[in-house]
Design a protein around this nucleic acid. Structure first.
Lengths: 143, 143
DNA sequence: TCTTGACCTCAAGTGGGCTTGAAGTTGCAT
DNA sequence: ATGCAACTTCAAGCCCACTTGAGGTCAAGA
């Protein structure tokens, strides 16, 4: 068991952020000594996960929905599958963007937006986005 | 040349968003007919790029900085390289998170946070983050 | 026992990224 | 020439994810 400043140090999250996350139900303190919150080790893994999910572009609401409360580790497989698929799409977009940037670094075209290779790289990611958007219009419940 | 509603339809960005982007200098209209803005094809590529970069987790400020104004396509190679590296880090984190999610879907551990395989998957991404943080402390200008 | 500093609460403020609404203007079809 | 749908500006508002500040409580060490 450790207090909020130790958790803050260990996680890199400010105390106010930790309190805020508790307030919205994303994390839990194991209990109090007087007013002071005390935490168990488990919360560190949870915080790591939150941090990762934020990097992935998920809102705190989505993260909460996906992780559930600490007492409910039996997550909905469909939700998890959908999130994993969403991440796959994002990875492809990021890969295209990164390749585009790296290409621009070595490209001699006067205006990079006109470079055919660059445009092709970008179009790959866009096509994926559009396909996805169309599919979710035809089939809204599959997100 | 096309007007704002056509650009909106083509890009999926609302007119207000397009005007906002112009206001903050992210895009430019090619000119006006009366009050109405008109655009050239080039802006579509630019918008695609913005969309992609947002997905990658960059703020509009960073995007502006990286893309420069339309009149300055000669971007700073170091900035581009740094962004590309940042994207690589993010891709690794996303990959770890996705693998973690997919594992949880098939994992029978009663509490997934306790599953050693899951923890290992997560730790991979965290380690990268910490390494990166430490490097940028030792060497702040290399961000 | 008394101080002190790290914790606490709760309300208000901040910044990013837009959207909305009111009020005005205008290109274009009739 | 006229109407009107679609554009325009500008200010204010909204949601998210926090941070800040004022004022209060408490555990532990001198």
């Amino acid at each position: 068991m450790f207090d909020i400043s130790e958790l803050s140090r260990a996680s890199g999250f400010s105390p106010s952020k930790l309190r805020y996350y508790e307030e919205i139900g994303l994390i839990r303190s194991a209990g109090r000594r007087g007013l002071k919150r005390f935490y168990e080790d488990e919360v560190k893994t949870r915080i790591s996960l939150i941090s990762l999910a934020q990097t992935a572009g998920f809102s705190l609401g989505e993260i909460k929905e996906t992780m559930g409360s600490e007492g409910r580790p039996d997550l909905d497989r469909n939700v998890l599958a959908a999130k994993a698929d969403a991440i796959d799409v994002r990875i492809k977009e990021l890969t295209a963007l990164r390749d585009g940037l790296r290409h621009v670094m070595n490209c001699t075209a006067e205006n990079h937006l006109d470079c055919p290779r660059f445009q092709r790289i970008i179009r790959v990611a866009l096509t994926k986005k559009q396909v996805d958007a169309k599919r979710s219009k035809r089939n809204p419940d599959k997100g």
